[in-house]
Nucleic acid binder design. Structure first.
Lengths: 218, 218
DNA sequence: TCGTCGCATTGATCTGGATCAATTTCGTCG
DNA sequence: CGACGAAATTGATCCAGATCAATGCGACGA
């Protein structure tokens, strides 16, 4: 198995062995559901390949995408009785599943690991605060640009630095992440492309004017 | 000292004694700053009395309030080099301060405490996801109603259940929390009062029609 | 090759909440 | 009490982004 990214990077060999013994490697087809908001939380997942859409629904169908999980990300950490959001695969996804029991046992036995998970959670919280700023106070163009730069940085931290940002999710997913409509996302992309700020390519976007984009993101 | 709420509830007496020996009781006057976004993170705080406004600023002055801390809440947990947001007192505030060194030592020494802090952080993350749903997908009226019900529940969990929700923060603070303008907040309050859904009283709001409010919050 | 089904784009119009602009209310201090 | 300043309310108007409504455009199977 590929060495788990992020959380396991600082573990000793015996801790890593223990972790791997408890992990169930799992695979999900495109569009398949990892878990559903409100259902009993049976497992925690560590994504090893692919992208996962995390979202909440309102009873009338309005959707808010709360994040996109990339390889290395942990899902379902809240670990109360029920999952707080739904998760499904965008394209093919591989993940390591830990049963709730295995997870809590592991956490109790290895404070070291708990510390890493806590760091991961506080980092997530920081990102959530930035997303609040974005949702509450930024314009459509700023939202799009911050999203593109954010995705580019995340891929870069995973060892895939590139001026071409892969966007495997649909325009609707992006709209629901940024609190916009699909039409506004599409129009804003078109406008940025006319500006020569970006170039729209199949499956993603090429960053053409990073200076201007960074300036807008401030 | 009053027994610290939430995090310390499940600690043994010796752990509690250790915690108290490291805590610096601190007091802040109305409007005083606990810490500022971007500054070096020297302390973690546990609020013991009063309400704290947590917010992020954009370079052009746009503000997003990311939360209001009530007694029992922990601030500055992210504990990277710099604070991720600013915090200042709404009215008089008392808090226990822990130096960064004391905090990390404590966390390393007491996995039990770390587990509690981690639970606290994951709960915060769940609230942050709900706030994203609110900011991205709800109308002004829904935002206001969810905010009022949320504050009511939080006071209730602290042992102050009441149909009158105290609102020590300004309309501007509420607007910046909900991603609205002060005028929209004011108008929406007025409309809800005309509906007899709420009654505006000095320093807060009285919930008159909880059924309708819960229905809107869905 | 063609038809069809999901996206995505583009255009026309509408509207919820923002912005601009006065008041009004309230808390505080001389 | 009366005057001042900060916060809140209310009204008039505007506009960014939503909504409504066609197309466009691959990918895929027959």
């Amino acid at each position: 198995m590929v060495r788990l990214v992020s959380v396991c990077a600082s573990l000793s060999d015996d801790e890593l062995a223990l972790l791997e013994s408890l992990a169930h490697p799992t695979h999900f087809a495109s569009g398949e559901t990892l878990f559903t908001q409100g259902r009993e939380a049976h497992s925690v997942y560590n994504v090893t390949a692919g992208v996962v859409r995390l979202y909440k629904l309102l009873s009338d169908g309005r959707r808010q995408v709360v994040g996109f999980a990339l390889p290395g990300d942990f899902l379902g950490l809240a670990m109360r009785d029920a999952y707080g959001f739904s998760a499904d695969a965008i394209g093919e996804v591989s993940a390591c599943a830990f049963s709730r029991g295995a997870y809590t046992a592991l956490v109790d036995a290895k404070p070291h690991l708990l510390k890493r998970l806590h760091e991961f959670a506080t980092h997530e919280l920081t990102l959530a605060h930035e997303q609040m700023m974005l949702l509450g106070r930024r314009t459509a163009e700023e939202k799009l640009i911050c999203f593109l730069l954010g995705m580019q940085q995340r891929w870069a931290r995973l060892g895939k630095p590139s001026v071409t940002v892969p966007l495997p999710m649909t325009r609707q997913d992006i709209a629901d992440f940024l609190g916009l409509t699909i039409e506004t996302v599409s129009r804003t992309f078109t406008r940025l492309a006319k500006d020569k700020t970006i170039l729209i390519v199949p499956g993603g976007v090429r960053v053409m004017n990073p200076e201007r984009m960074s300036a807008v993101a401030a």
